[in-house]
């Protein structure tokens, strides 16, 4: 088992899948000669050449559509959108073409395309480079959405996404590319559905995904040590479809739920998980579920304001203490 950085894990998945199948290609801005803004495709241009590692013009909707069209004929494109903020420009092709073509063709045509993109707030990138868009993608039928919280998931989810016959959006995070973690040496494929218990506990479930899993784990350690509250942390690596059974299983165990998201609250992961809890196991609850979310504002530039807009582990601790009256 090697310790890899998140970007190294993604790079390894690219490399293995491209070696496995000559129809796997990758495309995006600066991914080839320049090696990728986050190094996720470093060295692949030299290894596989310009026909398979395509530096694209800055035309997000155009090259996303081009990748989708290629996928109609069996090519398996891995498209990197340099920042999720730029994905807004590609939503037409992603939503109208990729997500719907199987259905509207009566199952004749499918778009097995992977779109990877980092979202989230990083370091003072301002309003137009700090979007958290997972809520947008997870509301679209016909599109799978996954979001890795560690290098192992980043590797295994990309591997499965490339081979899956559905279009898959992989929501990465700008602050996580240098995170280290264990990745098995042997090839493996991570399920694209389900959830993972990242920490077991009996008193409350903290639901997180991507970077917020780490806030939940930090908060759980504090809650255990300082307040004697044992939190279970559930990693929702699959955002669409969400793991209804897994969410309900944990709530039946702990009877309390706090959902932690880096995005604004309205129409988000938190509201969706709460709705699932209501539908699946409302009478198991000992307390009303809570959300820990970002403020509903464009992300400010000023460092202090930016921090104030985004939740952190302390906010999670505070929410749980409020729930327990401690």
């Amino acid at each position: 088992m090697a310790e890899l950085m998140y970007w190294e894990a993604i790079r390894r998945a690219h490399d293995e899948e491209m070696a496995n199948d000559p129809l796997v290609i990758c495309m995006g801005e600066d991914i080839g000669v320049a090696g990728g803004t986050y190094k996720a495709t470093q060295g692949l241009y030299e290894k596989y050449g310009p026909e398979r590692v395509m530096d694209t013009p800055i035309s997000e909707n155009g090259y996303t559509g081009l990748g989708i069209g290629a996928s109609f004929l069996g090519v398996r494109p891995i498209i990197e959108l340099m920042s999720v903020n730029f994905a807004w420009l590609a939503l037409d092709q992603l939503f109208n073409s990729a997500a719907k073509v199987r259905y509207m063709s009566g199952g004749q045509l499918t778009a097995p395309v992977v779109v990877r993109s980092p979202g989230g707030t990083a370091h003072q990138l301002g309003a137009q480079h700090s979007a958290r868009m997972e809520k947008v993608f997870m509301g679209i039928a016909g599109l799978r959405v996954v979001t890795p919280s560690n290098p192992k998931q980043a590797y295994g989810l990309l591997k499965s996404a490339v081979r899956c016959n559905d279009p898959v959006f992989i929501n990465e995070h700008e602050l996580m590319y240098n995170m280290k973690g264990e990745v098995p040496d042997a090839e493996f494929f991570h399920p694209l559905e389900g959830s993972e218990v990242a920490r077991e506990g009996r008193d409350v479930t903290l639901f997180g995904y991507n970077i917020s899993v780490h806030w939940c784990l930090q908060a759980a350690a504090v809650l255990s040590k300082q307040f004697g509250i044992e939190a279970e942390v559930v990693d929702l690596y699959a955002l669409s479809p969400l793991d209804r059974a897994g969410i309900a299983r944990s709530v039946r165990n702990t009877h309390r739920a706090v959902i932690v998201e880096e995005a604004e609250a309205p129409v988000g992961v938190g509201s969706e998980v709460m709705a699932i809890i209501n539908e699946e196991c409302f009478f198991e609850l000992d307390a009303a579920p809570l959300r820990v979310s970002a403020l509903n504002i464009p992300i400010p530039y000023n460092h202090g304001l930016e921090k104030a807009a985004i939740p952190n582990a302390n906010d999670v601790v505070a929410a749980v203490r409020k729930m327990f009256g401690k």
Binding site: A70, V75, S97
Partner: peptide, 22 residues
């Protein structure tokens, strides 16, 4: 296919051409 977003097929056609070439 027929697609109902005006201009949507332009890049899809280019993508099919890319696949043909590959």
């Amino acid at each position: 296919g027929g697609y109902a977003l005006v201009g949507g097929p332009f890049p899809l056609a280019a993508g099919m051409a890319k696949a043909i070439k590959m």
